[in-house]
Design a binder for these strands. Structure first.
Lengths: 168, 168
DNA sequence: TGATCGAAGCTAACAACGTTAGCCAGCTCG
DNA sequence: CGAGCTGGCTAACGTTGTTAGCTTCGATCA
């Protein structure tokens, strides 16, 4: 449709195929068969593209979580699965501040809703769960665990701890 | 002492004072009163500097955790405090893969030891705790929580969950 | 029909980045 | 004294994001 979204599409393709360092304005223009400066007819700059990708990631993750079950184990399992399937997009979306000015309103809340549902509306508990899910995913994506680490076991421990805690 | 460690010192100063983008080879050389190419007499490249800073962060955080109490709440409180006091260094150290070739051996284990102590040697549980602590810190440093969020409450929930779980 | 005007491309260029090559001063040691 | 290492230097290269300014094409409108 929009040429602008074609630009963001191309950026996403390059990001997932070749990693974040490959997402350069010239490489991106190349993917679209144009020259780098022409990109600025559709986009204010590179950071705007990143913000757009961040927004996409948030929407998709939110949708996946909403579609997933309503119990804690399946929810965080869906979180982990999506992050591992789209590692670059997840990193991009999770490691940078949200530009809440530019971000379409409601997206943040929509992504958070499934977590709030599972804690019965307890915001602090939802944040705690988000914290451990993001933390484990982030460390896993950054290869911070030894290659032979049993990460399923670590996830199981965290899930158990919160499951016991949330249903007293 | 070593000129190499003076380079790393300067990099750390710039990092904490002016943020990660300011740590450029020219800016770094400037801080030392020399020209950028001269840095390569002491250091292989920029990534080596980053690895050195990562190692420092790991050592210091490990020391802080070791000095902290042996119970879960004070341990994770120390983790959070150190990370918030040295946000750039923490991000640098936590978000990148470890170059286990170059990293002095034992450092990783030393940083992990206090966590293992608190879980009675249970590795999976220690990783789960590391996950939630890193996750909450990382999200907080990335400004991903609303400005008015009660993060102490989120930490308290996570700590409670694990405390109950670890001492059945 | 013909003039106008915006949309979307282009080339040339700039500053800043990491990095390499090659030169030179000065100190140490045989 | 001379050799060689240490630690500086300048010049330069390729890549990055970005700006300025020109052109071309299609639609709109008098």
């Amino acid at each position: 449709m929009n040429r602008r979204s074609e630009v963001v599409d191309a950026a996403e393709r390059i990001l997932e195929r070749e990693g974040p360092d490959a997402v350069t304005m010239r490489r991106l223009a190349d993917e679209l068969g144009i020259q780098a400066p022409s990109l600025y007819k559709h986009v204010a700059g590179k950071t705007e593209i990143q913000t757009a990708l961040q927004q996409r990631a948030l929407e998709r993750l939110g949708a996946v979580l909403t579609a997933a079950g309503a119990d804690l184990p399946t929810l965080v399992a869906a979180y982990r699965r999506w992050a591992l399937q789209h590692p670059r997009l997840y990193e991009l979306s999770a490691r940078h501040p949200l530009d809440r000015q530019r971000l379409a309103s409601g997206i943040e809340a929509a992504a958070a809703a499934p977590l709030l549902r599972v804690t019965g509306g307890n915001i602090a508990a939802a944040r705690a769960i988000w914290g451990f899910a993001h933390g484990l995913v982030d460390l896993e994506l950054a290869n911070r665990f030894p290659p032979d680490a049993d990460l399923d076991a670590a996830w199981a421990h965290a899930i158990n701890a919160f499951a016991i805690y949330c249903t007293p």
